[in-house]
Simulated assay, not measured.
Amino acid sequence: MSSPLDLRPRYNLAPGQRAAVIRTGADGRALSMLRWGLIPSWAKSPNIGYKTINARAETVRSKPAFRAAFRARRCAVPADGFYEWAPRGARKQPYLVTCSDAPLMLFAGLWERWRVPDGYERTASIGASRAGDALETFTILTTAANEAMARVHHRMPVLLDTDALTPWLAGEDVELGPCPSDILTIRAVSTRVNNARNDGPECIETVVGT
């Protein structure tokens, strides 16, 4: 089941945490809080979700973990930016990527519903869930980096433009390639973001000279 909406500002969302996603249900389009890291319905353990935070757009139609969700359970993940890291000598420098012509990005995503099996030992990864309860999770599609992103990393999220949102949620074919380079702003930010315990505005402070 999805959690009550929690729309407080987040500056450093980590895998395994919950985020708002847009999906279409019986009552139309709605926001739901789902856990980041897709758990396929057939999974024996929820721990697979830490390996499925992203799905490659090039293989999402055929990969066992994602193909059923690709056909029937799509979503969009709203965010005002995302982080990527690039090696700078002996360390990794985080960069914040935002959209220069819009305040919000929409990442193409998929969602799944996994039921806690009978006899599964309760762990921190499933919280207070019990046998038979449903955990709803999501993944973000990635694609090859555009020219701007390639200076930081070879992959990037699939960004949906506003015209693609409705057909994507409806299960139709949409372009899953990189967005144009000129709509992105990329800037170096504080290494505070390297620690998931840090989740405040200091994470997005600009760092000069990198």
Rank of each mutant, 00 (worst) to 15 (best):
P9Q: 06
P9I: 04
L13F: 06
A14L: 04
P15I: 07
P15F: 03
G16Y: 11
R18S: 14
G25V: 09
D27N: 14
G28D: 05
L31A: 15
G37I: 03
I39H: 00
S41T: 03
S41A: 13
K44C: 06
P46K: 12
G49F: 00
I53F: 14
R56P: 01
R56W: 02
T59K: 04
V60S: 03
R61N: 15
R61C: 15
A72M: 09
R74Y: 02
C75K: 03
A76H: 06
A76Y: 00
D80S: 11
G81F: 00
A86W: 06
A86D: 08
P87D: 09
R88H: 09
A90K: 15
K92M: 00
Q93F: 04
L96W: 02
S100D: 13
L106Y: 11
L106I: 09
W114H: 08
R115I: 10
R115H: 12
E121G: 13
R122L: 09
I126L: 02
A131H: 06
G132C: 13
L135C: 05
T137K: 08
A145T: 00
M149E: 03
A150L: 12
V152L: 08
H154S: 14
V158F: 08
T162E: 15
T162G: 14
T166K: 15
G171D: 08
E175I: 05
E175C: 07
G177H: 02
P178S: 14
I186E: 04
R187C: 01
R187L: 01
V189R: 03
V189I: 04
S190F: 01
S190V: 00
V193W: 01
A196Q: 11
R197G: 12
P201L: 10
V208I: 14
G209K: 05
T210V: 15
